[in-house]
């Protein structure tokens, strides 16, 4: 099992491009499930970035993705991710 499978607690997850986050906290404050919190670490620019503190509460709704002014985060449902990955790895029929 990968680290990712281990982390599958909720219905969805988020992907963060840590290096472009400016720590504005829009995603954290407006996540309807309150699943995000600030990291203790800093990114290379000196900002705290969001981490999925309560992974079990994330629904993958992607509202954080819509709010982010820096295009640094987005959310997805595991179901959709699995489908996408499977489609990408399945060769298309001739």
């Amino acid at each position: 099992m990968s680290a990712e499978d281990d982390a599958r607690k909720g219905k969805g997850t988020v992907f963060v491009r840590v290096e472009v986050c400016k720590g504005c906290s829009f995603c954290i404050d407006f996540c309807p499930s309150h699943a995000l919190e600030f990291s203790r670490e800093f990114n290379p620019k000196g900002y705290h970035f969001p981490v999925l503190g309560r992974a079990e509460d994330c629904t993958g709704c992607d509202l954080c993705g819509l709010y982010c002014p820096d295009f640094a985060i987005f959310g997805a449902r595991w179901k959709d991710l699995d489908e996408k990955r499977q489609a990408a790895s399945t060769p298309t029929q001739p």
């Binding site: 680290a3 981490v51 993705g65």
Partner: peptide, 14 residues
């Protein structure tokens, strides 16, 4: 770990 996983899939950002 999740952040690392995100590096590979980050291009999926719609």
């Amino acid at each position: 770990d999740l952040h690392l996983a995100s590096v590979e899939t980050s291009l999926d950002n719609p």
